[in-house]
């Protein structure tokens, strides 16, 4: 019988540790995997690195600067559109009065 495939998977996966200069780094990625009959999609993005040094482990997040700038621009555009629409509605209401 064929192996039953998981339809949806959203997980944090650890990569192979890298050691250099007395530091051991374990990269972490966030995976979204969706499978359906006749296809599928995979979205894999880096989220952090776990840094082990002198017995201490710290987690350093990886910031997606491009996505962050796009989000900020999108929010700004949304706020401007909302304010503009509200102003337009106010002027139309005043015109009716």
């Amino acid at each position: 019988m064929a192996e039953r495939r998981q339809v949806l998977r959203y997980a944090l996966v650890d990569g192979e540790p890298i050691s250099a200069g007395g530091v051991r780094v374990t990269p972490q990625a966030r995976v979204l995997e969706v499978h359906w009959r006749g296809g599928g999609l995979v979205w894999n993005r880096p989220v952090a690195v776990a840094v082990e040094r002198d017995g201490h482990t710290t987690r350093m997040p990886i910031v997606d600067a491009t996505r962050l700038v796009q989000l900020v621009l999108g929010v700004c555009a949304g706020v401007c559109a909302f304010m503009g629409t509200a102003r337009m509605a106010r002027s139309v209401r005043r015109g009716h009065e």
């Binding site: 890298i18 200069g21 530091v23 780094v25 880096p46 690195v49 840094v51 990886i62 910031v63 997606d64």
Partner: peptide, 20 residues
């Protein structure tokens, strides 16, 4: 799409974001 560059050296670990 490249997101960041991770640099390891004796001074520590540095994560530099890549701007598209």
């Amino acid at each position: 799409r490249p997101v960041a560059v991770i640099t390891l050296n004796p001074e520590g670990v540095r994560i530099e974001p890549v701007l598209d």
